[in-house]
């Protein structure tokens, strides 16, 4: 464990909690893509299949449970909470995310570390996390609605990616056996897509700021 990875994990966790709290506090999920949140839930479930078979550390186990729990809570809130679900942009959140699931699974069948059930699902979850932001990006381009996508959420998401890249650089130089190519390359693709999301976030935020200029 190094400080970059720990910070990355903390920022990732905070970004999810910020989103969950925002949805719960405002009882609204307008502007949030349920499909992206469903993909994140699938990422965590398929990545942590070893939750009950491999014990790495208390921190590792607790964080896995918290990631699965908090993302599941967001999906539940957006789909079943009587008040929140009414504000879901169902007609705008139309990205066919099943294609992403299928494509990532096929890729994992070809590109993985070992051809075992657990390893293929692990690689699948790494690829899926990289593209999971797409439905949210498309929804943001269509709606320009950043009401629930707070600046903090975007900041923590960016910090998570930045610190994880620092973590890989650190591990590359510090550990003789660097076998994280799948995580690393997929993580770079993910960070590029996040940068695109941040760009559209900034445009939407700027436009909204202009719209609300004092008359």
């Amino acid at each position: 464990m190094n400080i970059f990875r720990f910070a990355g994990d903390m920022f990732h966790l905070i970004s999810i909690l910020v989103l969950l709290l925002k949805i719960y506090a405002t009882k609204s999920c307008s502007g949030i893509s349920l499909k992206t949140q469903e993909l994140y839930a699938l990422v965590f479930v398929t990545r942590y299949l070893d939750l009950f078979t491999d014990f790495i550390s208390v921190y590792n186990t607790v964080m896995k449970l918290v990631f699965i729990g908090s993302t599941a809570a967001i999906v539940w809130c957006m789909q079943w909470h009587p008040v929140v679900k009414r504000s879901y942009d169902r007609e705008l959140d139309t990205f066919r995310h099943y294609f992403l699931v299928g494509a990532c699974f096929v890729l994992a069948l070809f590109l993985h570390e070992n051809f075992t059930f657990q390893e293929i699902f692990w690689a699948f979850s790494i690829y899926l996390e990289a593209v999971a932001i797409l439905p949210q990006l498309v929804l943001l381009q269509r709606s320009g609605n950043v009401d629930n996508l707070t600046g903090q959420y975007v900041f923590f998401l960016g910090a998570y990616r930045a610190f994880y890249i620092l973590n890989w650089i650190y591990r590359y130089f510090m550990e003789q056996r660097f076998s994280r190519w799948i995580s690393c390359i997929s993580g770079l693709v993910q960070t590029a897509l996040y940068a695109d999301f941040f760009y559209y976030y900034f445009l939407s935020w700027k436009n909204n700021a202009k719209l609300h200029l004092p008359a």
């Binding site: 990875r5 994990d9 990732h12 990545r47 070893d50 078979t53 491999d54 014990f55 790495i56 550390s57 590792n60 964080m63 896995k64 990631f67 570390e113 692990w122 973590n167 076998s179 994280r180 995580s183």
Partner: peptide, 10 residues
């Protein structure tokens, strides 16, 4: 002892 899973990252 914890299995040396190469996937110790979250």
């Amino acid at each position: 002892s914890p299995k040396g899973s190469s996937h110790d990252e979250l």
